[in-house]
């Protein structure tokens, strides 16, 4: 069972719908026991960073704890940004600190937010992209991005006038700045790959 963390912010449902569509058992929950029992957890997010961090509240420690003990975690959009140390969106806010790096504004000189479908170069050694070839389009919608500063993290990039990190993988920690649940068939394949990672970690 994959648990999508329900922390009372927008569009958590879309992620659940997408997992159900691919035939994956999924539960939307904020119960600590469900988080502990999950094969994998998903931290979704449509919100401003500070609001999302406050909404996650005391669940943050638990998410960190189970992730550091090896449970696969997938952060999406703001959920992905929250994996990092801190963000400067509408004030200074601390993230989960699971991946080194800071969330900063996309530099001016281009249309912001970065909104729409952009081409991501897919490194062969990142598990989320298995079976997807060398590059694919994904849907982005964000004004801030993570400057990844973690030597243990593998990073996939997209081009937005500079190399913008689109996805990270560090051990059992996965994150996508884009929305796999809203990137059509290609995005659904990413969620399938994450479900597969969870199954491998938790053989029945």
């Amino acid at each position: 069972m994959i648990v999508v963390i329900d922390y009372n912010i927008g569009n958590v449902k879309s992620v659940c719908n997408a997992f159900r569509h691919i035939g994956c058992e999924v539960e939307l929950s904020c119960e600590p026991q469900a988080v502990k029992d999950a094969d994998g957890i998903v931290l979704p997010g449509v919100a401003a960073f500070g609001y999302a961090v406050r909404a996650l509240g005391s669940l943050a420690e638990l998410v960190k704890e189970v992730t550091l003990s090896g449970k696969p975690l997938l952060g999406i959009c703001v959920g992905y940004q929250m994996l990092f140390d801190k963000s400067s969106e509408y004030g200074q806010h601390n993230g989960l600190g699971l991946v080194r790096g800071n969330v900063v504004p996309i530099p001016p000189g281009r249309v912001i937010p970065h909104m729409g479908w952009n081409l991501v170069k897919l490194p062969e050694d990142m598990d989320l992209f298995a079976g997807l070839g060398s590059e694919k389009h994904f849907y982005f919608a964000h004004s801030f991005y993570a400057e990844v500063a973690d030597s243990q993290a593998r990073v996939a990039f997209t081009d937005y006038g500079f190399d913008l990190p689109a996805s990270v993988q560090k051990a059992n920690i996965y994150g996508t700045q884009f929305h796999p649940e809203k990137s059509g068939e290609t995005g659904l394949k990413i969620l399938e790959n994450f479900a597969q990672i969870c199954r491998q970690k938790n053989p029945t």
Partner: peptide, 27 residues
Amino acid sequence: EKVSVNTAAVGNPNLLAEAAQRFGNQC
């Protein structure tokens, strides 16, 4: 993913600021 506001924002522009700060600009 996103919500569009039209008439209400003309009467109360602050609605846009309030919504953007809570949900993020992108939506």
